[in-house]
Every structure is written in C-alpha cells, then in structure tokens.
Write a protein that binds this DNA or RNA. Structure first.
Lengths: 235, 235
DNA sequence: GATTTTAGTTTGTACTACAATTTTGTTGAC
DNA sequence: GTCAACAAAATTGTAGTACAAACTAAAATC
C-alpha cells in the first residue's frame, strides 16, 4: 500500500467521520502537506481521489471545502465504510436497508431466471461453505457475503452488480447489530439460504424472490431493532 | 475547466469507448504524457481519477491496465455518459432500464409517504414547467429530468439519491430512442406526470407507485423497441 | 540449459519554480 | 470615517528535475 493510498484512507476517514465541519473550508494544500507530512504531489492526488468520491469540493484559487454530507457518494465502498465504521448513522443505515430490501428480492428473481451453470457452481460452493461452518463465525460470514455476491453476478445486470461493493460494506458494517451466535440461528440462516439456492437452481423466480424477501425482511427487522436499541428510540 | 479535467474527460472517454483493448496494458505514464502533451503531474492526477472510477487498474512498477468492462463503475455519471455517448451498448441500456423499472415506482411510493411541503414546491414547479412548454422540446425535457429528481429528493433516502446522476445520464443518453415530437405524446406525458404529482401531493403511496410504474413501463418498452430497431434483433 | 547478475524500465515520492487568479491589506482621497 | 483604487500576499494549476524502489528482461556465468 502506497503512501498516497494510506493518506487517502486517513484523510477520507477523518472527513467522513466529521472531524471537519461539514460544508466548511479545509486547510490549504500547503497546510495539509505539513499536517500529513508529505509532498504536495501526493497530497494533490489524495485530494483528487476524495473529490471524485464527492467528499471534497476543490475550487480553483479558492481552497478546499467539505462537501455537504447529503452529496457524499454513499455508493462508494470506501465512503460507506468510513462513514459506518465510527458511529453508525441511523438515517444512513435505514436508507441502506431500504435499498437492500428493495433490490435483493428482484436480484434473486433475475438470478433464478438467468443463472448459468457457471454461476450455479459459485453459488453452490458458497452455500456449502456456509452449511459446513455453522460454528466458525468468520468463515460463515465471509461465505454469506460471497453467496450474495454470486447471486448478484448470476442476475446478469452490470449496473446492479456495481452495488455489490456497497452492499458488502453495509453487511460488514451492520454485522454487529444483526450478530447472533446461537446454533439455532445459524441453522435458520442456512435453511433460508438453502431455500434461495434451491429456487435459483430449479429456475423458479417466484420462489427465489419470496425466499430472498424472507431473508432480507428478517435481517432488516433485526438491524432496525438494533438501531432502536442503540438510539433508545422507536420510529 | 482545467487541463487536468479536460484530459480526464478525453482519456476517460477514449477508454470507455473502447479505443484501448479491454483488460490490456496501457501506454506508460511517460508515453501518455507525450501523447497528451502534458506534465507527469497532471497525467498522474488524471490516472488517479480514472482509477477511482474503476476504468484503469494501476499496478505499482508494472504499468497501467484497462479494467475489464464489467467492473467499470456504471453508477458514475461520467462513466455512463462516456459509454453511452458513442455507440449505445444494448446490454448496458437494458441493465439500466431494468434498474430504473425496479426503483422508480418505489421511489414514488416513498415520496408520497414522506414528501414535505418544501419537496412539493419543487415537484409542482417542475411539473408546471413541463405542462406550460409542450412544444419546447429542450425545456420540456429539462423539466422532465428536474421533476424526477425532485421526486427522488422527496423520497428522503440519501443512498438512492446518489443514483440520480446516473439516472439523469441514462435519460439523456436514451433520449434519442424514446424521442417523440407529436403533441399527443406530450399530452400523454403531461397527464402521466400529473397523475404522479397528484398522488404524491395527496399522500397516496399506492397511486403514486402505480402511476410511476405506468410511466416507466411505457418509456422502457419504447426504449427497448428502439434498441431492437437499432440492432435489427428481437429479444 | 539453468541460475545468477546486471542493466533498463516503470512507478512512487519529493522538491523547486512560475503563472493565473482570488483574497487580503494598505494607501489615499474625499 | 468611508469608500475606492491599488499593491501585496496567498492559493491553486502546471511544468520540470531528481532519486528511490521494484519489477522485467537480457546478459553472463556456471
């Protein structure tokens, strides 16, 4: 990892986590070079990247400004990770869950309609990895993410596939809220995934959509419950 | 517009439009500096931006490579514009239309549930602009885009709002396919928009979703018909 | 022929320099 | 004291050089 990459992560995280007043002026290039102990060259490349992610607004001869947070590119995996990492933003998590609840069942439907033999291989492998490791939380979780990514690929829609990084970042971020260790929970999760996998394999779009809807509904309700608990507020 | 911005557009467009073999090696930094007649400083910033948009894969000490096109960030307005500008990619357009058909009715539903008075002002203003200019294609089209953006804002979901740029870029790009000049078509479009606007104003989610679905279905079928015509193939 | 060495290439980082433009500060007139 | 005009400073955009680090491929050695 290069110095540019490290500073991009560091500075991007600082901005995304609100260490600079939103919509306010940032230090000048020269000052940032001192603060991060780097050359202007590297600093400018960092700024370019963060501008592309719409965290920074760089105005010629005027200076750098923090973009208003509504305009940050929440479809960028880095931005999402940075924002979600620190304190969870309930409004953002709710937005993400809404989007996920909207698109995932349809993705599963498309996958059931369009999955090729190659697609099925990856889906099955991921599922088997989950089913075989109900007690290894790390492996189980990784396999879960891989399973959903494989389904996404099987949907054969390049646009929606671009959401996969974001969805993965979300899943990682809200993991704490939905975390359950009990073996009965793992069993339930495996059963749900098996239902979806079977529906896709048998090319049954309705069943796939329904299975996916059940999964995402349960996860979403758990996450919202976790949020309410964290806030102490019910919405 | 700075030289860096111009070269980003130029080089990005060249890559997105396939002037370099996908997944192949690109010229070295030094060679690109010569080709675009610029300093290494500027060239590196251009490369950083295009890497962030996932058009380029920059490997340390090895060189620059074109990313496989499935991984290009089609949720980035620039990338979409570059790709769609030249020859239209039927598969990509279909993917975009699918996503739009999926999300727009739900966005309209959310807008009907959540729109504030301020949101309604912008929606109404856009609608009035459309209704008043059925003969001015330019103004009509701009107002159309603004209408949909206003509905998007009213949905109060920051994640899905990030799709607005992409959706706008799509609408601009496939405009040629759905283009219709007849006054009766304008009338129909205005009636459809009025139905959606009324549903949102009266806070009727079901009606809003249904109105939106009718609109997007008609537009989508027209676009697909245009694609088939362009390809001479029916799917 | 296989392995090691060496030279060349390519990117990462640092530094200086100057132009263009905006902001700030100062001066001066009234 | 207020305002206008001008001068100085600050800030970003662009260009160029230099060197380090790491990869590639050719050359040399065994």
């Amino acid at each position: 990892m290069t110095k540019t990459d490290r500073l991009t992560q560091l500075f991007g995280k600082q901005i995304a986590q609100g260490e600079f007043e939103p919509a306010s002026a940032l230090p000048s290039e020269a000052e940032l070079c001192e603060r991060f102990d780097t050359s202007r060259n590297v600093m400018r490349e960092v700024i370019k990247v963060l501008s592309t992610k719409r965290l920074i607004d760089a105005q010629r001869h005027r200076g750098l400004f923090v973009m208003p947070s509504e305009q940050w590119n929440y479809l960028d995996a880095d931005v999402l990770e940075w924002v979600l990492e620190k304190g969870v933003n309930p409004s953002l998590v709710r937005s993400l869950i809404e989007v996920r609840s909207l698109i995932e069942p349809t993705i599963s439907r498309w996958a059931a309609e369009r999955a090729t033999a190659v697609d099925l291989v990856d889906i099955e492998a991921s599922f088997n990895l989950m089913a075989a490791n109900p007690k290894n939380v790390e492996v189980f979780h990784e396999a879960d993410i891989r399973f959903h990514r494989a389904v996404l690929v099987a949907s054969h829609n390049v646009v929606i596939q671009q959401l996969s990084d974001a969805v993965g970042a979300l899943q990682r971020a809200i993991f704490d809220y939905t975390f359950q260790t009990g073996i009965e929970h793992m069993d339930l999760t495996v059963r749900e995934h098996r239902a979806l996998f079977d529906a896709i394999r048998c090319k049954n779009p309705e069943a796939a959509e329904e299975a996916s809807r059940r999964m995402v509904t349960r996860t979403a309700s758990r996450a919202v419950a976790g949020l309410d608990k964290a806030e102490g507020v019910r919405v």
